[in-house]
Design a protein around this nucleic acid. Structure first.
Length: 142
DNA sequence: GCCAACGTTGGC
DNA sequence: GCCAACGTTGGC
């Protein structure tokens, strides 16, 4: 079981909308490193959902429902299969969102790729980091 | 709103 | 193949 973090600007695609839909195809990733992370995701992996820019906090937990498959090409220079996407299901909302501020203040959490490589939209995190975040959020793991 | 970090593009 | 210019992302 692996642990991941995906980011979204709330204005573009919010956790609220995700919850409403229950399931979403995580498409549109156009960065090789992020794509490789998508391809490494396994069904059942836990995924933290982070709101960037206007909120800068972790808001929910999702799960990998379907492992990577070709992201529909969006431009003339893209061939089908150049990029990948996965399907995610929304699992639970964090009782208390975990802010970037508190992440940076924490010795364990500030080692996350989210902090070090702020522009990367799909990043891995350790089990310890994941569980600690849930604890800070006042949310129980299954 | 600004700008640092980073990725991509295109001229040479 | 190098690198300057440019665009985008996201923190501040």
């Amino acid at each position: 079981m692996n642990y991941w973090l995906v980011k979204s600007e709330p204005d573009a695609y919010s956790w609220t909308q995700f919850l409403k839909e229950g399931k979403t195809a995580w498409t549109g990733v156009r960065n090789f490193q992020a794509r490789n992370h998508l391809r490494a995701m396994k069904r059942g992996d836990a995924v933290l959902f982070y709101h960037s820019v206007s909120e800068q906090q972790m808001v929910g937990v999702a799960r990998v429902e379907r492992e990577h498959y070709p992201d529909p090409a969006s431009g003339p220079s893209e061939r089908k299969g150049d990029w990948s996407c996965v399907d995610l299901t929304a699992e639970k909302t964090l009782a208390r969102p975990v802010t970037l501020e508190s992440i940076k203040a924490d010795p364990l959490l500030r080692q996350m790729a989210l902090v070090k490589q702020s522009r990367l939209s799909v990043t891995p995190l350790t089990k310890a980091q994941f569980q600690w975040i849930l604890q800070l959020a006042g949310t129980k793991t299954k």
